[in-house]
Every structure is written in structure tokens, then in C-alpha cells.
Design a binder for these strands. Structure first.
Length: 430
RNA sequence: GUGGGCGUAGCUCAAUUUGGUUAGAGCACAAGAUUGUGGAUCUUGGGGUUGCGGGUUCAAUUCCCGUCGCCCACCCCA
């Protein structure tokens, strides 16, 4: 588990702000639930046989001997909360988003932490408009995820889709797959033989070389051809030019998924290249004691998203620098010090971050300091400026005297708002 | 849960092969050269329980045992 320190936290604040703006604009409301839940919640939702439940949860008994678990994902917690608080009694459907820490006790690896963070969204009990039915909601959640990642600045987004089949057919599909793999059992690795007993779909995740021929020859298509709904969804994605690939071997490790599932991968993440994943889960609410509630949702790994963004474009977080002004008074006259304090106060009152050295020192020392602090703009203030009724705004991103501008100081005195808005405009332009 | 690798200054590493003086360097940090224009250079300075515990030895960063942590991959997921 990791500390997130100043210098790094700005990136997190940046992506969190983007997420809030984006999801609120799409009609989603934030939900926050406790990190601790009864273990039973995750066993019933994610599934007893899943890797997450049987070997990756931080679980313990509390003082009342209750079995508690630190949440390994958020969908089950959201469902629990919606059912418990009766949110669907006062509104027919819900659009919720969340962000926060999740916990899985795995062996660490590139792009994998035991405490990691997710941003996710769920569309709950929203029926699509006929004649497309629920497929419109599936399309919307996929498009939402895709557009958000674009908005965050991610490039080369690879979207993979699969259709796990309609509920009515699921038992049949599993049975058929089990029959097929049982015949080939001798050719499968130990893990796959275990999966055959516990959860046959997961066999498709196997990367062992010797298993591949058997997996590739699995007659998926004859048992579970792509449904009409799936075709409707891909047609919609085609129409808005969201590229995707159909991957019949994409199965997910959380048992509550049915119907369409999806995953997004990005480059630069090592072996753990999945940035986001999700899908339809129509039976979770009923399994947890609620009523029949069709749902779909996704979650994004924040650590992986930040890594991918930085790998693709190392300059992407530079913009964070611009929201700050350095004040450089370098002559110790009463007039300079008085002006210095006026500017400092005025800027801070307008919530512009101001950096400065506590003591008066040479201009070159000030500039050096401003540069170290990663500040973009410097307000230069000396006796000459006082005399000229001007102040110098220096843009450090430009070399030499190129990025300097003079502002009439009377303007600043008579209307501080105009100076602040001048600076704010400069900052947002960056 | 499985396999491999690594723990020495804030960071990246050297010294360990063959045990031997005060554990070094670069970067970063602090002060100055430098009181009107930054990222450079030079000088000086502060920084270490060599992951932790035990053992062998006159002597352990170095050898042995244990332990903890981290990294990479598998499994699986974000």
C-alpha cells in the first residue's frame, strides 16, 4: 500500500475533478459507502469460487465476532446501499458514480497495489426506449466510459467486448462447455481442471500454452452465438465511430456479470494492461434480497489510468503548474513591501495560490526559487515598478524577456478584480 | 497460493567476488560566489542502525540461518 504525497497528489486531484465534472454532466450522482462491509455481501455477489473471494480479501472478525471485509470492489456495496435505503422506491432508476480505495490482498506487481483506487459508474434499473430495449443502456455505459477516458486524455484506447449470453441460456451454455471440456480434460492444466468443476467460463482466461489449442477449438459459437442485443449494441458503437474488438474469450472474474461485458486496455502498463472493465449484471439485486433490477456499470483503475496517461504523454500534468503565482519583491523599500503585502492579500483572497520567499532577496534568487517551485507566472516588484506605476508579469515558460508584460499599476489599485481576472484568464488559457 | 530477483544516504547506484583503516559517487537539499531577469558552473555544508534479528569471527555491508519488506512474472483483476 502506498502513501500519495504532495507532488503526486495533484495528479489525483486533477483526475478526480475531471471525473466529477464529466459524470455530473451526464446526470450521475456521487455515492460514498463504508469501506468495511459484512464478508457475506461479497461472497454472495462476487461469488464463492471467484479468485477475489477465495484468496484476495482482507477479512477479519470484529469485536462482535462478525465477519467483516474491506471492500474489494464497489458494485456490491452500491447495491447493498440502494436496497437498504430503498432508493428505488423514490425514483424509478438511478445513475450513480463513485471513487475511492479498494482492497485486495494479492502479491504486488506492476500496476497492482493492495490498496488501489477506482472510479466507477452504475446505471441501475434504467429501461431503454423501445424498440432497442435495454441495449441502449449498454451502449450508453460503454460510450460513457470511452468518452470519459478520451476526456481524460487517454489515447490508443482498445475496447474489447463479449456476450456472455442471455440468462435463459446461461445454464445451457455452461453445461455444453463443461461437456466439451470434460472430453478434453486430459489436455488441460491443473488450474483449468479446477475451473471446469467450479466455473467453466473462467477456463477462457488461461494463458498456459498447452491449453490454447483446446480453448481455441471450443465451439463457443454453436453454444452461444452473439445475441441480437449484442449486434444492436455494436451497431450503435459503429454509428458513433467508437472502435471495438469482439473477443469471445473475454470472461470476467466476478460472478454477477451476464450479457454484454467489456474491458479497456492501454499500452505502457506491463502485464496488467486493463484500465477499466465492466458489464451487465441483471440479477445481483435479487441475489442480495432486492427486487429484479437490471443494471450495468464499469470501473476504472485510477493508478493504471494515471500511469497510462503519463506514459503516453509525459507533459500531460504540466498544466497543474499554471494555477499559481510567484511574488518577487527584491528591494527592501517601504513602498515595495507595502505593495507586496497588498498583492499577496488580494490574490489570496481571490483564491489564487501565491508562492514567495519570506525574505527580500535578489531577483535572480527569486526567479530561481520560482522555477524550483514549478510556478508559471512571476509578479516582479521593485522600486522602478513603483515609480513607473507598473508591475511586471513574467511567464517562466518562455525564455529571457520574451514572456514579460507590463500592467498599469493604477488599474490594479483601482480595480483588483481586473488584475485577478487578468491572471485567471492567463491561467485558464494555458 | 506458485516461480524468479532485490534490500547500502531523500533518489539512482558503488564497495560484497577473496571479511580488514573513517562505507563512496552522481542527483537532490542548504549556504555562498551573484542587490534588476530563472533552469548553468564552481566552492562549502548537512546527511548512514548497510531492512530487521540472531550466528560464525580478533574483525561482518561482505559469510551462514531466520524474518520482514519491495520488485517482476503466473493466477486473477482495475
Amino acid at each position: 500500500m502506498e502513501d500519495i504525497l504532495p507532488g503526486e497528489i495533484e495528479k489525483w486531484q486533477w483526475i478526480e475533478e475531471k471525473a466529477r465534472i464529466f459524470f455530473e454532466a451526464h446526470g450521475f450522482k456521487e455515492i460514498r459507502t463504508p469501506i468495511l462491509e459484512p464478508t457475506e455481501l461479497f461472497v454472495r455477489s462476487i461469488g464463492q469460487a471467484s479468485d477475489i473471494v477465495h484468496k484476495e480479501m482482507f477479512s477479519f472478525k470484529d469485536r462482535g465476532e462478525r465477519d467483516m471485509t474491506m471492500r474489494p470492489e464497489m458494485t456490491a456495496s452500491v447495491a447493498r446501499s440502494v436496497i437498504e435505503k430503498g432508493l428505488l422506491k423514490t425514483s424509478k432508476s438511478l445513475r450513480l458514480y463513485y471513487m475511492g480505495p479498494m482492497f485486495r490482498a494479492e502479491r504486488p506487481q506492476a500496476g497492482r497495489k493492495r490498496q488501489f483506487h477506482q472510479i466507477g459508474a452504475e446505471i441501475i434499473n434504467e429501461k431503454g426506449h423501445s424498440p432497442d430495449g435495454d441495449t441502449h443502456v449498454d451502449y450508453e455505459i460503454i460510450a460513457l466510459l470511452y468518452r470519459f477516458l478520451q476526456y481524460a486524455g487517454l489515447k490508443n484506447i482498445q475496447l474489447n467486448l463479449n456476450d456472455l449470453g442471455e440468462e435463459a441460456d446461461r445454464a445451457k451454455i455452461r453445461k455444453s462447455l463443461s461437456e466439451y471440456f470434460s472430453k478434453e480434460k486430459a489436455k488441460l492444466c491443473k488450474d483449468c481442471q479446477w475451473r471446469l468443476e467450479k466455473n467453466v467460463l473462467r477456463i477462457f482466461d488461461c494463458k498456459i500454452h498447452d491449453c490454447q489449442p483446446v480453448l481455441n477449438k471450443a465451439p463457443w459459437e454453436s453454444f452461444a452465438p452473439l445475441s441480437n442485443n449484442f449486434k444492436l449494441i455494436t451497431a450503435k458503437l459503429d454509428s458513433v465511430e467508437i472502435p471495438y474488438a469482439v473477443n469471445r474469450r473475454l470472461v470476467r472474474g466476478l460472478d454477477y456479470y451476464n450479457g454484454i461485458v467489456f474491458e479497456i486496455t492501454a499500452e505502457g502498463l506491463g502485464a496488467q494492461n486493463a484500465v477499466a472493465g465492466g458489464g451487465r449484471y441483471d440479477h445481483l439485486y435479487k441475489d442480495l434480497g432486492g427486487s429484479d433490477t437490471p443494471c450495468t456499470g464499469f470501473s476504472i483503475g485510477m493508478e493504471r489510468l494515471l500511469v497510462a496517461l503519463e506514459v503516453q504523454n509525459p507533459q500531460i500534468f504540466e498544466a497543474i503548474k499554471t494555477h499559481c503565482v510567484y511574488l518577487a519583491p527584491f528591494e527592501e523599500t517601504p513602498e515595495v513591501l507595502k505593495k507586496f503585502n497588498e498583492y499577496k492579500l488580494a490574490l489570496r483572497e481571490r483564491r489564487i495560490r501565491v508562492e514567495t520567499l519570506a525574505r527580500v532577496c535578489s531577483l535572480s534568487t527569486h526567479l530561481k526559487k520560482a522555477n524550483q517551485l514549478g510556478v508559471r507566472f512571476v509578479l516582479i516588484l521593485g522600486a522602478k515598478e513603483i515609480g513607473n506605476q507598473k508591475v511586471i508579469v513574467k511567464d517562466l515558460s518562455k525564455k529571457g524577456l520574451e514572456g514579460q508584460e507590463l500592467i498599469n499599476q493604477e488599474l490594479i489599485n483601482s480595480d483588483i478584480n481586473s488584475v485577478v481576472s487578468y491572471l485567471k484568464e492567463k491561467m485558464t488559457l494555458c
